[in-house]
Design a protein around this nucleic acid. Structure first.
Length: 463
RNA sequence: GUGGUUUUAGCUCAGUUGGUUAGAGCGCCUGAUUGUGGUUCAGGAGGUCGUGGGUUCGAGCCCCAUAUUCCACCCCA
């Protein structure tokens, strides 16, 4: 066995016990809110058939899918089919011959596959949530990993805009429960963007238009104008676009101005109506949300091309960080798997980014109450004999307890408790065994006193 | 995929134009304290300088390749 230096695969991370406590706190909070709104959890495999995933995320996305090499002699198949290694310029045509499986790239496409495969068992509307890792062969950066967790909630088979409104509430409730105080839930509608493109008379350039104006807060109006010109828009198009992009005021004001600007576009009007309905629903569900936190943002485009209606994006205003969540409606979610006419709408929380935000704002609750509550020190065989039944009694009472596994020096045992953040240490030496009252030391205050076992259990339970 | 950047002790980082034996803080271990952590004091261990080549009398420092970290694009959670 050669001496290999241990290292992590690029863009992946280990999670220590302390980190897991915090990550689970985030996951549990989000899951609890999902359940509260009627979403049920599912899981799908880490790997899917490559065919299931390719072509769903665009050319860029396909490149970022982690493929799994076939087992055995994976070159056998291309050889048998007469694959001409010398003639092919790149490996694209070889890929399907040597790889049949890939790691999931997101949770939405596997969910669509799930719905189609289980259509006879599920009843519509079907509301599911899913918290699992996804993998992307992207170049890692801060807040950007090759393995990261998505927390998705989607509903299929309901075109009601109540779903959209409830997602805004879910975002609000989860983020508020996690301790965030200043965040914005941005809302837009793909139909409005289509309407704008129609208005200019260049509906075919909608993707180019949205990609460019999505960058407004990043590169400013001048940057956006420059990019629009590069992408095939004329200066007169820009004159028509500018007032729309720079729309100011509260949500009602924005919608009113859009109504007149997009009066010629049926699609645009539809989008405005949808947003109005969503905002009305939110107002009745959670009046504090409207205008305070939910903000209509025409420049919000999001990369995914399959959104057809409402689009969400959530940003925190307390820390400089990319979006911590996003989502939207996609008509015909399952069409790619042969099940037509099913509409879906969903959102996603970026748990890894939320972690960074909570850490920066110091919002994680004290982890001390979650680990071992009490450590029993170990002197010798006699003290072990006394400690073992006590250990069981403590655990039966629901108290997380440990006996130090060796008769090490007390100094070492105390240092262990200290390093692990265990708040109480029991000392059971010969005196304590005789009296039946262990000494209990509070590691925070340093106080130490003798307690009967009954008193001890009461104290540790109540605390 | 494009351009830059980082890598030296367990961790965070110094290290002069290329020149003896590569340093600090924190952490770790031992003792002061045979029944007491966190504070204090004394002592100690720990480094193929990311990896592989090259230049040189001599390389942590210069050159090439490669991996890795972080950053800006592209894109995205």
């Amino acid at each position: 066995m050669s001496n290999i230096k241990p290292s992590l695969a690029k863009g992946t991370r280990d999670f220590s016990p302390a980190e897991m406590v915090r990550r689970n706190y985030i996951f549990d909070t989000i899951k609890t809110v999902f359940r509260k709104y009627g979403y049920a959890e599912i899981q799908t495999p880490a790997m899917e058939n490559l065919q299931t995933l390719t072509g769903k995320y665009g050319d860029e996305g396909d490149k970022l899918i982690f493929k799994i090499l076939n087992s055995g002699d994976f070159l056998k198949d291309p050889k048998k089919r007469g694959f001409d290694f010398a003639a092919e310029e790149n490996s694209n045509k070889l890929t399907p011959l040597i790889s049949e499986k890939a790691l999931r790239y997101d949770l939405t496409v596997p969910f669509a596959r799930y719905v189609v495969m289980h259509q006879n068992e599920i009843s519509l509307p079907f509301k599911r949530f899913q918290v699992q890792p996804v993998w992307r062969a992207d170049r890692p950066q801060r807040g950007r990993y090759r393995e990261f967790y998505q927390c998705d909630a989607d509903v299929v088979g309901s075109d009601s805009l109540l779903n959209e409104a409830e997602f805004a509430c879910i975002y609000d409730e989860a983020l508020r429960t996690l301790g965030l105080r200043d965040y914005t839930i941005k809302l837009n509608n793909r139909k409005i963007l289509s309407g704008i493109a129609e208005m200019i008379g260049k509906p075919e350039l909608i993707i180019d238009m949205t990609v460019a104006i999505d960058k407004l807060d990043k590169i400013g109006l001048d940057g956006v104008s420059k990019e629009l010109l590069e992408r095939g828009f004329s200066p007169s198009d820009l004159d028509m676009l500018k007032p729309v992009i720079l729309l100011q005021g509260d949500n009602t004001t924005k919608l009113d101005s859009l109504k007149s600007v997009l009066s010629s576009s049926e699609t645009g009007q539809k989008g405005i109506e949808e947003l109005q309905t969503v905002l009305q629903y939110i107002e009745r569900l959670q009046p504090a949300l409207t205008n305070e936190i939910v903000e209509l943002d025409i420049t919000l485009a999001r990369g995914l091309n399959y959104y057809t209606g409402c689009i969400f994006e959530v940003k925190t205003n307390e820390v400089a960080m990319g979006s911590i969540g996003g989502g939207g409606r996609y008509d015909d979610l399952t069409g790619m798997f042969g099940l037509k006419g099913l509409t879906g709408v969903g959102i996603s929380f970026g748990a890894d980014r939320i972690y960074d935000v909570l850490e920066e704002l110091n919002l994680f609750p004290d982890a001390a109450s979650l680990g071992t509550r009490v450590l029993i020190t170990n002197f010798d065989v006699a003290s072990e004999d006394f400690a073992l039944p006590l250990l069981s009694r403590l655990r039966q009472a629901g108290i997380s307890a440990e006996l130090y596994p060796a008769a090490a020096k007390l100094k070492k045992q105390f240092a262990y408790a200290d390093a692990k953040g265990i708040p109480y240490v029991l000392i059971v030496g010969s005196e304590e065994i005789q009296s039946g009252k262990p000494a209990v030391k509070n590691m925070v205050t340093g106080e130490q006193e003798h307690r009967s076992i009954v008193e001890l259990i009461e104290m540790l339970k109540g605390d």
